[in-house]
Design a protein around this nucleic acid. Sequence first.
DNA 1: ATGAAAGCGCTAACAT
DNA 2: ATGTTAGCGCTTTCAT
Lengths: 334, 334
Amino acid sequence: MVTLKQLAKELNVSISTVSKALNNSEEIGEETVKRVKELAELYNYKPNKVALSLKQNKTKTIGVIIPDILNHFLAKVLFGIEREAVKYGYNIITCISNESLEQEKESLRLLANGSVDGFILSIAEETQVKNEIDHFKKAISQGLPIVMFDRVAHDVLCDKVIVDDFDATYNATQSLLVEKRKNIAFISTLDSLSVGKLRERGYRKAVLETNVCEPLVLKIKKKDDQQKKIMSFFKKNTTIDGVVAADSASGIIAINTAVNLGMKVPKNISVIGFASKSDSYHTIPKLTTIRQHAKEIGESAAQLLINRLQNKSGDIDIKTKIVKTTLIKSKSTL
Amino acid sequence: MVTLKQLAKELNVSISTVSKALNNSEEIGEETVKRVKELAELYNYKPNKVALSLKQNKTKTIGVIIPDILNHFLAKVLFGIEREAVKYGYNIITCISNESLEQEKESLRLLANGSVDGFILSIAEETQVKNEIDHFKKAISQGLPIVMFDRVAHDVLCDKVIVDDFDATYNATQSLLVEKRKNIAFISTLDSLSVGKLRERGYRKAVLETNVCEPLVLKIKKKDDQQKKIMSFFKKNTTIDGVVAADSASGIIAINTAVNLGMKVPKNISVIGFASKSDSYHTIPKLTTIRQHAKEIGESAAQLLINRLQNKSGDIDIKTKIVKTTLIKSKSTL
DNA sequence: ATGAAAGCGCTAACAT
DNA sequence: ATGTTAGCGCTTTCAT
């Protein structure tokens, strides 16, 4: 990479002249500006990012820590963050915690050395289970703002972007009740997460408000064979006529299993799942889905952080943004 | 963040003494080292990454440019890259080209200002279609090594990690021929990509080597409704008894469509698709898949780049690593 | 209109 | 054993 120094030498002027010329300072003579810019162009000069960061004490880089990059929802949020960040000239450094508290801590620690101006993150499963939050507080106290999304720690004072998980399953369940479904089951792989608990509660509330329908919940663990679990669940509970799935795979597998067992979807059984558009194509009939607007969540998170970073006074109020889910009716419900 | 300067002041010693003490230099007295380390610990001192980067003229950061973060395969490669990079103390800055040449160029341009030590990337679709490679060559000539994976430009001299796409579909098709399938179709959404072309050729070769089976190819465009296309393809070609799908969604949809049309899988029709383990659970019966070992591809790419970055002499030979696919037999084939 | 110098945080060669 | 200095690339204040 060419430096100001090299340009200055070649042009027989001082470094500061070159710098000023390139920054369109009024101080520098027209002719000089022209010469400088031409040579800079020729050599494809670009100001060294690292030097600028050091000088200005900010990196224009955001640290993003996500639990699992293979989770479609989280990947899509990351996409939204990236899109929004780029707009404002920010880069993102991505770290994957792998749902591990230790790795989450380590990522936070490693980036809290001037590598980034702030963090956007979703909390690892282990962290939520153990309810540890000191590492977040520490980062914030060091002047590195955090924006949490989806899986958040309410005891940490920072901006947050969350989904109306409770309402989402409450409404989804109600829409099945409207279809006169009498035996609506709830299937979830997310029992250990805050969002999973909220989704179950939304379902339970809707069911318990009626007196025609009892809660029926299937919880699937990471290590279980999801297909087998759902298959035997269906075989044991033959009267199920509705399913609300808390994750995308469960909804898809539920439809395929129902079809496989000779049930008609949605004639005999309706299924609603949390899923993206592309996933909803994985079944015939197509899955009715609760869309979380993942990209928008990412964009909002980025906006909140950038806003805070660029706010000189630094004392803007803490915000929690709720991104409402949408129930997209497709062919797996009436 | 605390700096050496602040520590030095508080301890009434010079900055370099503090620096040396913290770096366990032999020069500094035992007692002093102890005092310095204690204060550093107390204040949670961490060397400023930006200053180190400037000083050492390397950032220990890798720029990763991927076309689509929502593509499961690419996300998994990214995962592999991240895992390997972290091991060697590297961070990754992720940029998403969105399959756009312009965005790919821009990402390369923006990071080629000292932000990263090198690149790992997979080429955007538009770039492959237009066959532009100047931006890659430019980066390399500026001293920023590139490692390409999956979608590569053979005319660019750099390390590469690729999949044996041709062999993968050749072998998959052959395994269907061994099952005595007589009408094997090939379904692809990847026609514009180098990998898509290779996969089709592998299929064609296997089919043309027999005289019992004619090539039958369905190409699906981005804007098409994949489900409808496959449905009408099956309805038009009722004798199909085998499918090789070049992408993960097509394989899944093919099974569901076949089942929906009353065919027995794998009794009447066998299906093989490129897919990950988690995707293969989206069908009943489970999909027989060609695994690309995405994580391993990412790890290899990271290794190649880091190797090159840490190789002082800088003149190691260019390597192309081929990661062999594996055909994982499941329940959608005999 | 141009240049010199300081300083961002750090390391390391070179004094003392 | 400790300190001084220079320098990484850049911006900016303060001379000239």
